[in-house]
């Protein structure tokens, strides 16, 4: 059975991931898949963009891809 709502897309959850290791936007989207959060694609885009604006993580390019990360 689908289990939407198992995982919540919150600022704290994103902060925890980005403190652990640099991630691309797609890496983050994999952590907060719509089927896990119960959000729509549009909601996911909007909420994640707002969270990233607030966190304003540092960026670095690894293997030609932009990664976000936060220092503890």
């Amino acid at each position: 059975t689908p289990s939407s709502g198992d995982i919540q897309l919150t600022e704290e959850a994103v902060r925890r991931y980005l403190t652990r290791k640099p991630m691309t936007t797609k890496d983050l989207l994999k952590k907060f898949q719509t089927k896990k959060t119960g959000l729509s694609s549009e909601q996911t885009v909007n909420v994640l963009a707002q969270i990233l604006k607030r966190l304003n993580p540092d960026r670095k390019v690894v293997h030609d891809k932009m990664h976000f990360y936060l220092k503890e």
């Binding site: 797609k26 989207l29 694609s41 996911t44 885009v45 963009a49 990233l52």
Partner: peptide
Amino acid sequence: SSSEADEMAAAIEAELNDFI
């Protein structure tokens, strides 16, 4: 699908780049 994830990632990054 992965192409949907690509589109979502592109939309987020576009919004962040406007912000900066």
